[in-house]
Amino acid sequence: MNKPDYEASPAMFRNQPLGFIAAVLLIPVFGVGILILLYWYIKARSVRLTIAGDSIHLSRGILSKEQTDIDIREIRTVLIRQSFWQRIFNVGQVEVFTTGDMPEFSLQGMPDPNFVRDYIRGRINREDEER
């Protein structure tokens, strides 16, 4: 199997640095911070976005799984939303649209979101040139 061009889960610290610091500071308070960080870690690792070649694979869940596969040729729009702090830490929300007004999926806190958009745009443009 070939190495994916992009494979990531939502970032914890880079996505919400103040929340992460607050959780760390709450560790001495009856271990509340550890519970928060553990829940946050499991939630972040239960989502995985993989892009390889002309397909996007999204996997969500730990015990029960929800998996979505999208052919890049079916994608109409990729929307990236980034706050000022998210731009500094190079994370953001990625929304992928195929048809209709609702996104096929929306992922918050993804590392290097502009790479995702540029990669998809490049593959679509390559397909158009080959036709």
Rank of each mutant, 00 (worst) to 15 (best):
F30D: 00
F30E: 00
F30H: 04
G31Y: 03
G31H: 04
G31C: 06
V32N: 01
V32T: 14
V32Q: 01
V32S: 05
G33S: 04
G33V: 08
G33A: 03
I34Q: 00
L35A: 09
L35K: 05
I36T: 05
I36L: 10
I36A: 04
I36R: 06
I36D: 06
L37Y: 01
Y39W: 12
W40C: 00
W40F: 00
W40T: 06
Y41R: 00
Y41C: 01
Y41P: 01
Y41E: 01
I42W: 08
K43A: 11
K43E: 10
K43Q: 14
A44C: 14
R45H: 12
S46M: 11
V47E: 12
L49V: 09
L49D: 03
T50Y: 01
T50S: 06
T50G: 07
T50R: 13
T50V: 10
I51T: 07
I51E: 10
A52K: 05
G53P: 09
D54M: 08
S55G: 03
S55V: 10
S55D: 07
S55N: 09
S55H: 14
I56H: 02
I56M: 08
H57T: 14
L58H: 07
L58M: 12
S59Q: 15
S59C: 11
R60G: 05
R60I: 12
G61P: 04
I62Y: 07
I62N: 02
L63D: 06
L63N: 13
L63C: 01
S64W: 09
E66R: 13
E66C: 07
E66T: 15
E66Q: 09
Q67N: 15
Q67Y: 10
T68W: 05
T68P: 02
T68G: 02
I70C: 03
I70W: 01
D71I: 14
D71K: 12
I72N: 03
R73A: 09
R73M: 05
R73H: 05
R73Q: 04
E74D: 11
E74L: 10
E74Y: 04
E74S: 10
E74I: 00
E74V: 02
I75Y: 03
I75F: 01
R76Q: 13
R76M: 02
R76G: 09
R76D: 09
T77D: 11
T77W: 00
T77N: 07
V78Q: 04
V78M: 06
L79D: 09
L79V: 08
I80G: 01
I80V: 11
I80N: 01
I80T: 00
R81D: 00
R81K: 09
R81L: 00
Q82H: 02
S83Q: 15
S83D: 11
F84Q: 14
F84K: 15
F84S: 11
F84Y: 06
W85Q: 10
Q86N: 13
R87G: 15
I88P: 05
F89A: 15
F89E: 11
N90D: 13
N90A: 07
V91L: 11
V91R: 12
G92R: 06
G92C: 14
G92F: 03
Q93R: 11
Q93A: 12
Q93G: 09
V94R: 08
E95T: 00
V96R: 00
V96L: 00
V96P: 00
F97D: 03
F97Q: 04
F97C: 12
F97E: 04
T98P: 09
T98I: 08
T99L: 15
T99V: 12
G100K: 05
